[in-house]
């Protein structure tokens, strides 16, 4: 019995080793990965560094379609915060997980 178990475990380990990734050159990093790591040269972005070309925008509006926002309460996200009634005999942990009250 012990011998059978040993053989089975050895076979399982062999299968796992055979299926593991082959060691080789690292994958080519995506541009976003390079940026996160500090750019392709490895140098971190410096404060104030220019990146790409400048973007110039001119915008304007004129007329009566303008609003002055008055102070007031901000509505809160009802669907997200609302807690429906819990089913009968719900334990507190399930009430928390189901977001019922």
């Amino acid at each position: 019995m012990k011998r059978t178990m040993f053989v089975v475990m050895a076979a399982a380990l062999w299968v796992l080793a055979a299926c593991s990734p082959v060691v080789g050159p690292p994958p080519i990093a995506a541009a976003s990965d390079q940026a996160a790591a500090g750019g392709p040269t490895g140098a971190a972005f410096a404060p104030g560094q220019r990146v790409g070309g400048p973007t110039t925008i001119t915008a304007r509006a004129s007329g009566p379609d303008v609003r002055w926002i008055l102070p007031g309460p901000r509505a809160l996200d009802q669907p997200f915060l609302a807690r429906p009634p819990c089913p009968w005999a719900t334990t507190p942990i399930w009430a928390f997980l189901w977001r019922c009250g």
């Binding site: 972005f45 410096a46 404060p47 104030g48 560094q49 220019r50 990146v51 790409g52 400048p54 973007t55 110039t56 925008i57 001119t58 915008a59 304007r60 509006a61 004129s62 007329g63 009566p64 303008v66 609003r67 002055w68 926002i69 008055l70 102070p71 007031g72 309460p73 901000r74 509505a75």
Partner: peptide
């Protein structure tokens, strides 16, 4: 708050020009 649903109609105009050259604060 400054983010309610209440607003008063007014009139006005603006001109905005920007040059975005820099991505990182500094």
């Amino acid at each position: 708050t400054p983010f309610p649903d209440k607003a008063a109609p007014i009139s006005g105009n603006f001109v905005l020009g920007v040059v975005d050259s820099t991505l990182i604060d500094g």
